[in-house]
Design a protein around this nucleic acid. Structure first.
Lengths: 186, 186
DNA sequence: CCCCTTTTCTAGCATTGCTAGATTATCTAG
DNA sequence: CTAGATAATCTAGCAATGCTAGAAAAGGGG
């Protein structure tokens, strides 16, 4: 039955359109402006269609967007580290991480801020998170219990948020990166 | 006119009751559960009364709560540092900071997460923030441009949030504190 | 061509933040 | 002590939100 096949493809395509619209709207006006009505309008369907794809509603949509974000951030981290080692690698990774968060604020928000109470239970997300963590650990050469990586990640995460909140002087960004790199390499 | 005086006192008292109720409700069920109706109910008045005290609505209430939080966090930081110096001081401050964030999650959320778009424009908040920053700087002995303090603060802030989001293993907490303290003292 | 299943929409509920206008309490002046 | 003005408070409602049940439309199989 090729009909079912075409149907599945259309479904998948529409699902992706929902995610794209959500992400674009969020980057444009924050997640608060991502409403079910606006989203339905953007894809040319009515609201209940959204719930056919994402029974969990807005929360599930955000979580799905966030999951893609983790993959992208991990890729950006790996790209920054490749071909480098030691302190230059740490510096490049730190800068890449902060750039990523600054370039996609709504995406980063979905990844860390909004679903505070939602635990990432699925295997996919667990694996995606671990991959990102491991990428940081390998740059640091952290083969211990992971506490160093946790501390490094904390610094990057906190810096991203504080920069975004306007509580760090933008012109000090290179100095901050240098400080973190110096303290976490070697 | 002593009547006006008594009136002002009642007003101030009620204002504080609003803030206390907001904070208690938030710590109990998150800021999403702090609704104007529930808040009005908690203080025994109707909703418009809230707007008499806080014209900015829920946002202004949260900001006021957050302001008190900054004062408390600064005090906790200073207390942890007092009588200590060098790495023990940094360790104590880091632990105190994380303890504070963990003990008052909703308060900490109001301080940093929710009013992301709201800039702290008032002089009060500006001064309060600077005081907290300076407390950290003095522990680190940062008399430079402040980049070291910014990096240290970033690490503490990020660690608080990641711990709360369940993305750091709780049993590694002491190891993380030790890592941060080792890297940011001296 | 008709029927049955699946898809889609319309319409609505409960809740939210917030506000205008009516209502009640409080104080002042005679 | 009372009438009138002022201040405080409430009732009722608006627009927007997330989400959903039941009606309507579309589609495929006989």
């Amino acid at each position: 039955m090729p009909a079912a096949d075409a149907r599945a493809r259309r479904m998948e395509e529409r699902r992706q359109r929902i995610l794209d619209a959500a992400r674009a709207t969020a980057e444009d006006g924050g997640w608060a402006s991502v409403t079910s009505r606006r989203l339905a309008d953007a894809i040319g369907y009515s609201q209940p269609v959204l719930y056919g794809h994402f029974p969990g509603g807005k929360t599930e949509i955000m979580r799905t967007v966030a999951l893609a974000g983790f993959a992208e951030l991990t890729a950006a981290t790996r790209a920054a580290a490749s071909g480098r080692a030691g302190r230059p690698a740490v510096t490049a990774v730190a800068a890449a991480y902060l750039d990523f968060a600054a370039a996609h604020p709504a995406l980063y928000e979905a990844m860390f801020q909004l679903p505070l109470d939602v635990h990432f239970a699925s295997d996919d997300s667990e694996a995606e998170l671990r991959a990102g963590f491991d990428a940081l650990a390998s740059v640091l050469g952290d083969d211990g219990g992971g506490a160093v990586t946790e501390a490094f990640w904390s610094a990057l995460h906190g810096m991203s948020l504080l920069e975004r909140a306007g509580r760090m002087r933008p012109e000090h960004r290179p100095a901050r990166v240098a400080e973190v790199a110096a303290r976490f390499s070697g």
